[in-house]
Design a protein around this nucleic acid. Sequence first.
DNA 1: TCGCCTGATAGTTGCC
DNA 2: GGCAACTATCAGGCGA
Lengths: 92, 92, 92, 92
Amino acid sequence: MATQEAIEKSEQKSKAGGIAQEQLRSLIERIERLEEEKAALAADIREIYAEAKGNGFDPKVMRQVVRLRKMDSAERQEQEAILDLYIHALGM
Amino acid sequence: MATQEAIEKSEQKSKAGGIAQEQLRSLIERIERLEEEKAALAADIREIYAEAKGNGFDPKVMRQVVRLRKMDSAERQEQEAILDLYIHALGM
Amino acid sequence: MATQEAIEKSEQKSKAGGIAQEQLRSLIERIERLEEEKAALAADIREIYAEAKGNGFDPKVMRQVVRLRKMDSAERQEQEAILDLYIHALGM
Amino acid sequence: MATQEAIEKSEQKSKAGGIAQEQLRSLIERIERLEEEKAALAADIREIYAEAKGNGFDPKVMRQVVRLRKMDSAERQEQEAILDLYIHALGM
DNA sequence: TCGCCTGATAGTTGCC
DNA sequence: GGCAACTATCAGGCGA
């Protein structure tokens, strides 16, 4: 995909090619807006872990729990199997 | 944070340690809820890039633009931070 | 520690205060040189993982092995114990 | 990469699968060696900051300076990258 | 010395 | 299916 095409496309739409510029600006701004919201949610999540830590829970293990809950058990078992294989190969 | 401590802490709060269980469950669920929302936003962002591509814009260039704008503001913040440091270092 | 002090210190050493500047430049350059070397080693390590992958080994598990080998077993067992506790608390 | 595949691959190479074991051991040891060197460099860097502090420089300011210089060159690279993208996007 | 916070590293996901 | 960008995790440095 080339800017060239973008320019042509915009020129199909207007006399000045300024339309594409406006579209681009709008798209970029929508993206940046959504990324801000995403960052805010990430901050909220961090805050919960901090709160949990303050209540005596171990955040590191909590993260592990969240990971396990969304992980397919089949793949998890396979990973463990490979790990065992390597551990034995190294005589650990 | 040790398991022992976690257990003790929960036992300070209840007769059975069931309170800590409920707290933990609640925290985990709040986190999972927020992560769902975050994933939804990420999907929205992907969608915008796809839409932009459909309108003849190059997503790769757009990502670079977004990245660059983010770096600009980050660097601005760094500049201010170092200015503050100098000001303090000079005892002003 | 303040720049003020640094300036005073340098003025004890010279008439111009340019000495401190030279020292600072030298220190910064030594640091940057070492960080380059560090980055080069990191690149070498990445390369070995890539090579391993090319030979049919799973890099992710290899990293896990390296981590385990440098980890104290006591702490590892404790982490596992906490994890079990949480898993049971959540009825997983 | 699956365990099965790893096993098969090793068995293609030798009669006993012992070759893969030796390969794995060798790779792990090379990695551990490089990581030691990397840790040594990190220690050297820390030492320089300590030495600098002993000479009246503020390590915090120094770290900020190093960070800023790194960001400058990173941003320069990003600028060049986007310029390349534009050039290609315009079909030049 | 401990807890916090930032910077470095590893893992995941999306794109080609 | 491999590669690259992005995100989340972890560890080390700093301040209280």
